[in-house]
Simulated assay, not measured.
Amino acid sequence: MKQINLIALFLLCFCTTNIFAQKNKKLDIIAYYTGDSKLIDEYEVNKLDQIIFSFCHLKNGKLNVDSAKDSITIKHLVSLKAKNPQLKIILSLGGWGGCEPCSAAFSTNEGRLTFAKSVKEVSDYFKVDGLDLDWEYPSIEGLPGHLYQAADKPNFTDLLKKLRSTLGKKYELSFAAGGFQKCLDESIDWKGVAPYVNRINIMSYDLVNGYSKVTGHHTPLYSTNPKEESTDRAVTFLLKAGVPAEKLVIGGAFYTRTWRNVENVNNGLYQPGEHTDGTSFRDFSTTLTEANGWKYFWDDKAKAPYWYNEKEKKFATADDLASIKAKTEYAKAKKLGGIMFWELPLDKFRDGMVNTIYEVKNK
């Protein structure tokens, strides 16, 4: 009888653990990755659910892996799945400045079908799990000089429809979307695209960017005033637009946006300045230090950190461990599909941003 009770207890614990594990899997940890085949081995891949290889590009209207080095990297990423059964490897098309021919290539029915077929061929060859479209942006201006047109909006919806039809239901399909209001308002037919994708990766960073002449939070969780962009503002908009919560993924930034010639007013926040080179999260502890003249501030309303250097008149904004924790807690509370970030090589190998996300996910 005692033995039967022990077996029953074991089965109960096993089932409970299994249910808990499955429940946790709903919040995916998604890493964009531009590194090579060796750097990835320095990271705790077991804490990731997706690695999005960045980037592939268009060549003659087809999905193209740019080099032999990239091919080796993709093959190595796929090999990691042997030890990490939860891991999915995704190829990404485009990136900032990387989708110059997209508007023209996807402007015809034939062009969209050609691309969809090429994605299947490349995916079958590398045995990857999906595609992430990083077209910045359909129907609104991205990199100055790149073609964009009103027809991009319906063409993008049809492109996703053709990709889903060509690739089948098991294939992961996502796209990166700007978290700023103009993109939310004008770029995408949200209700139209939602049925075809597994996820929408909201780039809830660069909300003030290299073109911004005034400082601000570049990746805040909440808006501090009605005009300020934020993660929550984008999520709220998309939920109201009819996108299911489990298809929304919010973004973290593992790097600063930094301005110089910023006067010491309001500790540099919301002040005029000139954008300059930033810092990777892995270097925060040696760069953004008091010894180097930096002071750390926390905006509790935005749930966002910022730094000001009075001597050098510099201002920096980013995610840190506190803000990425708040974002992960938010994603859990809202039952979102996950957290993605730009990008893994900017993190520490251990005890960094990914580890914080992972710990909050598994609370």
Rank of each mutant, 00 (worst) to 15 (best):
K2E: 12
K2R: 00
I4F: 02
L9P: 09
L11Y: 11
C13I: 02
T17F: 11
N18H: 07
Q22T: 01
A31C: 06
Y32M: 03
Y32L: 07
G35Y: 08
G35Q: 10
S37I: 08
S37K: 15
I40F: 10
D41Q: 05
V45P: 04
N46Y: 09
D49W: 06
I52G: 02
F53Y: 06
F53N: 07
F55G: 07
C56G: 11
N60D: 15
N60G: 10
N60P: 06
G61R: 05
K69P: 02
K75F: 07
V78E: 09
S79G: 13
A82C: 02
P85K: 10
I89R: 08
I89S: 14
L93F: 10
G94R: 05
G94H: 12
G98L: 12
C99L: 09
C99H: 14
E100Y: 08
E100H: 00
S103W: 13
F106N: 05
F106V: 03
T108R: 09
N109T: 09
L113I: 12
A116G: 10
K117S: 02
D124P: 05
K127D: 12
E136W: 06
E136I: 09
I140E: 03
I140C: 03
G145W: 04
H146I: 05
Y148D: 05
A151M: 13
A151P: 00
A151R: 10
F156A: 05
T157R: 14
K161G: 00
R164L: 14
K170I: 08
Y171C: 15
G178R: 00
G179Y: 00
K182F: 13
C183F: 02
D185W: 06
D189Q: 01
A194V: 12
P195L: 04
Y196I: 08
Y196G: 05
R199L: 02
I200Q: 01
N209I: 11
S212L: 07
V214F: 13
S223A: 08
T224Q: 01
N225P: 09
P226W: 09
K227M: 14
S230Q: 07
A234H: 06
V243S: 10
A253F: 13
T258K: 15
W259I: 14
R260F: 03
N267Y: 09
N267Q: 09
Q271G: 04
H275F: 03
H275M: 04
T276W: 03
T276A: 01
F281D: 11
F281H: 09
S285M: 04
S285L: 13
T286W: 01
L288F: 15
T289K: 11
E290N: 00
W294P: 07
K295S: 02
K295G: 01
D299M: 12
I324Q: 00
T328H: 04
G338N: 02
I339E: 12
D351N: 15
D351L: 01
G352P: 07
G352H: 13
I357C: 05
I357T: 12
N362G: 09
K363I: 06
